[in-house]
Design a protein around this nucleic acid. Structure first.
Lengths: 342, 342
DNA sequence: ATGAAAGCGCTAACAG
DNA sequence: CTGTTAGCGCTTTCAT
């Protein structure tokens, strides 16, 4: 089994009996008009016959572009991200770009090393799902002139384009749904306000509660240490220990809602019999939980697509404006909410 | 905002007042011994000060390696794959490799175009989760001398290293569990035998049924069109329409089991009251289903890690043997199985 | 121990 | 319309 070495442009040129640069022009759609139709045909035929695949390393080195973009996210096993990746790819592949994924596990060191690796690879742009509200890493990237798009979360330092769900609207949908069912004592199991989604959802909860005429009781607000199941469970336990009465809870995301499910099961609290729960994101299998989770659907795939489009714009035209695209979520009513019994 | 252009080796060399080739030697751990300690220090300091990041395009072009490996899979949103990706990355990143993911959606055209893209990118190797039992695409890749590792599924044409779960053992665990509970009429909701996992699980079911002294009734065997929920539901419906009696089913994977759940719910059949169901894979959230799914856990993350290690070996030493690593699964008993009532 | 020179495969002026 | 030339940033003989 001979590891046959790849065909190069020179091979094609030789076969077509033209100069390599002519072959290059013939092969590239942009420059093809510059060359004689007959020659084009000959070159194309030769390339086809030899099975020529351009070496994108050489091409990238010359053009100073890699046609690769990085996607930096906390953890791919969070079910939020795979559909987003698909969205990115579906948009980017059309433009001949490839996506390279890197996980940070919310670890600052890992984030730095991951970003370094991206820079070394000379990615043409970066999609970041890891933004904190104040994020020096992002500032650094911007200063280095790296095209950037934030997804899901944003930074407050401004100037960076982003594609997110509309958290204010989404939390409003969740809360109004509960109010319409008749709930008045509604708890909020939040998430760290150090990231934009945590803050926005918290603020939205407070603001919508006010406008719906619901009492905003600090005793009804807890915060999970992170957007995950166990922290959600801990936060919900803390809430229960406060011994305040409530008939419903809005969770800052589905995994936190799952944590609430766990504690409810563990303590024999019926969902939605005794307490209604609304999640956020509509992650895969949210409909398979017991009870099926009422939640706010975030168009994650679409976020990926739009982010890709925005990034491509930014790469092609670095002066373009820093759009902050907010995609509208949708309430999905399932089995975890019902009118309060009392 | 000036897009400052990256620091090159020449910049570092100039700052350290050495020749670029000396700087190169100093920077590379392999060749560092060749250069004077003092000079090394000066170069390293200069590189650090300037924030030098080697251009891996140039490096790759010279060395004829990209330090990238491709991972070709059907669909990243299948919950089986994200942990596998993490396993790959955790192993590969240590060796300074990056993973590029591509989805085929089980579409032959798409598969061809992704593989082309991978070749164009000159990936150093490929991990494939898309193998069919006879797979011309894989043959082509082998002939081209591309280092290859198959995961999850294998091909029958041999000679390609692979890392999979031990399906024979796993199905045995599932079946024995049901037999030990007292089930005798056990159905099998399978998957296409055109892929190795579909075939292996089918054969394992038949073989274990025999050795356990269970009747192998063709009427109790159906096959889903694919490893997914809806096909699983359709297959289970077909089984029910046959009007044969059974008290338990082994599903070829969790998503198919989920499809069985759906039909059971739709037709008012109690799980596990009237029929016990065992899944396969132990996908994320299998424990959150209602009822929590008894299933066979496949060490997916570990498969990723081992595949990465194997691929690195193959890249470094293309003559190495085509190991077929089979990782042992584990039965996870949850709420979807119980002794038969009758 | 370091410098000089060549070249990986490609593209883009610049000529003709 | 096509050929010539040079160079992207790096590594690696080959000299010294």
């Amino acid at each position: 089994m001979v590891t046959q070495q790849p065909i190069t442009l020179r091979d094609v040129a030789r076969a077509a009996e033209v100069h390599p640069s002519t072959a290059s022009r013939a092969l590239n759609v942009e420059t093809r008009p510059l060359v004689n139709d007959g020659t084009v045909a000959r070159v194309l035929a030769a390339a086809e016959a030899l099975g020529y695949e351009p070496n994108s390393l050489a091409r990238g080195l010359k053009l100073n572009r890699t046609f690769q973009v990085g996607f930096v996210l906390p953890d791919l096993t969070n079910p939020l991200f795979p559909p987003m990746v698909r969205g990115l790819e579906d948009s980017l592949n059309g433009a001949k770009y490839t996506v390279v994924i890197a996980n940070t596990d919310n670890d600052a060191d890992k984030e730095r090393s991951v970003l370094d690796a991206m820079l070394r690879r000379r990615v043409d742009g970066l999609v970041l799902a890891t933004a904190r509200r104040h994020d020096p890493a992002i500032d650094g990237l911007r200063e280095a002139g790296m095209p950037l798009v934030l997804v899901n979360r944003t930074t407050e330092d401004g100037g960076v384009p982003s594609v997110t769900g509309d958290d204010h609207a989404g939390i409003g949908m969740a809360l109004r749904h509960l109010v319409e069912l008749g709930h008045r004592r509604i708890a909020y199991v939040g998430a760290p306000t150090s990231v934009s989604t945590g803050l926005a959802r918290y603020q939205a909860f407070v603001s919508w509660a006010r406008s719906e005429g619901i009492e905003v009781d600090a005793d009804l607000m807890v915060s999970a240490d992170w957007f995950q199941e166990d922290p959600g469970a801990n936060a919900f336990r803390e809430l229960l220990e406060r011994d305040v009465s409530f008939t419903a809870v809005v969770a800052a995301n589905d995994l936190i809602a799952l944590g609430c499910y766990d504690v409810a099961t563990e303590q024999g609290i019926s969902v939605p019999g005794e307490v209604s729960i609304v999640g956020y994101n509509d992650m895969p299998f949210a409909d398979k939980l017991s009870p099926p989770l009422t939640t706010v659907h975030v168009p994650v795939y679409e976020i990926g697509r739009r982010a890709a489009d925005l990034l491509l714009e930014t790469i092609d035209q670095p002066t373009s404006m820093a759009d902050a695209i907010r995609l509208r979520p949708e309430l999905i009513v399932r089995g975890s909410t019902q009118p309060p019994v009392s």
